[in-house]
Design a protein around this nucleic acid. Sequence first.
DNA 1: AACCAATGCAACCGCTCTGCA
DNA 2: CTGCAGAGCGGTTGCATTGGT
Length: 228
Amino acid sequence: MGRAPCCDKTALKKGPWTPEEDQKLNAYIQKHGQGNWRALPKKAGLLRCGKSCRLRWINYLRPDIKRGNFTPQEEQTIIQLQKILGNRWSTIASHLPGRTDNEIKNMWNTHLKKRSGTNPNTSSSSSYSSNLCTVQNDPRMNIVCREATEQNTYDTDINRPCTPESPNSVCNFSYSSELPQLSAEQIKLFSSAYGVCNMPEYYQFLGSHGNTNLSIRSVVETDEKKRI
DNA sequence: AACCAATGCAACCGCTCTGCA
DNA sequence: CTGCAGAGCGGTTGCATTGGT
């Protein structure tokens, strides 16, 4: 016995959306808001799977979607973040307002992958599921994160804010004691992804802690205090 | 003009994650 | 603690368009 299908596919329409369907979906969400995608198609009078409706809304109909070509700055951001995060498109998309994960993924696969010279076989996403995953392939980038299965203090969702109320959201990156410290360039890359700090100070701070375990939150907090 | 290959994008599929009973 | 349902994510596919011969 296999997994139950998410919806009855036999009676559902597939393929490109028509303007009428877009209008129905749009009208329904304007009136009732997002949520309960499974029930939405029926209520909105659409012969579509809930997943399909969600995708259509998120990637195309949402009012805050930015249309048109990517700016060079956006492209740079994608390249940098992909180096650090791997193919975590939704996380990357959260750094680019108005852009969707699907759009970014397509952009990467069709344009940026070639330009950045990334070998698809060594992308960090493939190593992400291992117990200790190296964020970057450069052996000097010794930021390793422990899987949640090993330590509950690590949270794989970097978007979730680290707050005192949710200690499990602390991103506990540890620096292996046998390995050299990060280069300034690597720190810059890392920091630009998280938007956390002022380079020279941050580099000094990390350098001074290069051989100890530390949490990103404490780095950020200490750095902010220093600047206040 | 006709054909074919390459490209780009929208949408689908299947798996994982999360919240809740 | 466990199992289930719904939501979310990333990889892949299919098709329309574009460019080259």
